[in-house]
Amino acid sequence: MKNNKFFNRVYKIVSQIPEGKVATYGQIAAILGNPRAARVVGEAMRRTPDYLDIPSHRVISKDGAMAPGYAFGGEDKQQEMLEKEGVIFKRNGCVDMQKCLWSKTVMEENE
């Protein structure tokens, strides 16, 4: 049950990521006060109920890499979704983190 509460907090944060921006698993964990819980954030993304309709495709690895191909129904599906929203990719297929990382901070979450 402890994970359900944490997962719900993750979903609340992810729902705030604006179109054209991305956040990292670790960034979300840090915003929630548990910077070592990046894998738990990943698990929350994997288990996101469809009815929540949150932009889980906007959560990526710290190096800008996409989730495994099965996560969004195809090898390049997540990248396609992000490109449609204006997220910029480098030649290596990773998100340009300097241009597209969401700047939500822990301070903003506690306001």
Rank of each mutant, 00 (worst) to 15 (best):
M1I: 12
K2V: 11
N3H: 14
N3L: 15
N4E: 14
N4C: 06
K5Y: 06
F6V: 03
R9E: 15
R9H: 14
R9S: 14
V10M: 05
Y11L: 04
Y11S: 05
I13S: 01
V14Q: 00
V14L: 03
V14K: 00
S15C: 08
S15M: 09
S15N: 15
P18F: 09
P18D: 13
V22R: 01
A23P: 07
A23T: 11
Y25V: 01
Q27M: 15
I31P: 02
L32S: 12
L32P: 05
P35G: 01
A37V: 04
A37P: 01
A37F: 14
A37E: 11
A38M: 07
R39Y: 11
V40C: 03
V40E: 10
V40P: 00
V41Q: 00
E43G: 09
A44D: 02
R46N: 03
R46D: 03
R47Y: 06
R47F: 07
T48C: 12
T48W: 02
P49N: 05
Y51V: 11
L52F: 09
P55E: 06
P55V: 04
P55N: 06
P55T: 05
S56W: 12
S56M: 10
S56P: 00
R58C: 01
R58V: 04
V59K: 00
S61N: 13
K62A: 12
D63T: 13
D63F: 04
G64T: 06
G64S: 06
M66A: 08
A67D: 05
G69F: 06
G69I: 03
A71W: 05
A71D: 02
G73R: 08
G74N: 05
E75L: 14
D76C: 07
Q78Y: 03
E80M: 11
L82I: 07
L82R: 06
L82E: 01
K84F: 08
E85C: 10
G86A: 08
G86C: 08
V87E: 00
K90T: 04
N92I: 10
N92G: 04
N92M: 09
C94R: 15
C94V: 08
V95D: 02
V95G: 02
K99D: 07
C100R: 03
C100S: 12
C100F: 07
C100V: 07
L101E: 10
L101S: 08
L101N: 03
L101R: 11
W102P: 00
W102K: 02
S103E: 15
V106L: 13
M107A: 14
E109F: 15
E109V: 09
E109L: 12
E111M: 12
